[in-house]
């Protein structure tokens, strides 16, 4: 067992986890934050993307023990004072989702993308979201949602 102390959505957390626990399992099963999804479980689909120290990573491909000392943000941590994050707002406005399963990962990746690219082109947006798969193939509106949030992150 590994003892880990970390911050999740601003809350200090100390827990003991089995050494082979994945970060996504820890988030969903130990913290009951089920907004982070497991789509493929093979590091391909990106629906498990969270921010670790401000960078987007696939939480199904990271050990919980490796997150010791980290500052983690999940989709639940984006809302501030009852107001959606600008990227969430833009996904809502541009209908950037169909079934919604991939959406938490799409939103988390989009925020990281807009932090590193202040004014991305359509191509840069599509390239930036390479690690996220939408099996409804609703990419057109997802790209529109990211474009709609330019300058707001």
């Amino acid at each position: 067992m590994a003892k880990i102390a970390l911050k999740v959505n601003g809350n200090k957390i100390e827990k003991e986890v089995a050494d082979n626990t994945l970060l996504v399992s820890f988030i969903r099963e130990n913290l009951n934050l089920t907004g982070t999804h497991v789509g493929c479980d093979t590091s391909q689909c990106g629906s498990c993307v969270v921010h670790v120290d401000g960078k987007s990573v696939k939480s199904c491909t990271m050990l919980a023990a490796d997150a010791n000392g980290a500052d983690i943000t999940t989709i639940e941590g984006l809302e501030k004072g009852g107001k959606l994050h600008p990227v969430q707002e833009s996904f809502k406005k541009h209908h950037g989702l169909q079934c919604g399963y991939c959406t938490p990962g799409m939103v988390m990746s989009s925020i990281d993308l807009l932090k590193t690219h202040k004014n991305p082109s359509d191509e840069e947006i599509r390239k930036g979201l390479e690690g996220n798969i939408c099996r409804c193939t609703g990419y057109q509106n997802i790209v529109a949602s990211v474009k709609g949030a330019i300058g707001k992150v």
Binding site: G46, S56, V57, T61, S109, D112, G128, E130, G131
Partner: peptide
């Protein structure tokens, strides 16, 4: 290499 998330890790 890979995608943004792979490159971050």
């Amino acid at each position: 290499i890979g995608d943004m998330q792979v490159r971050n890790k």
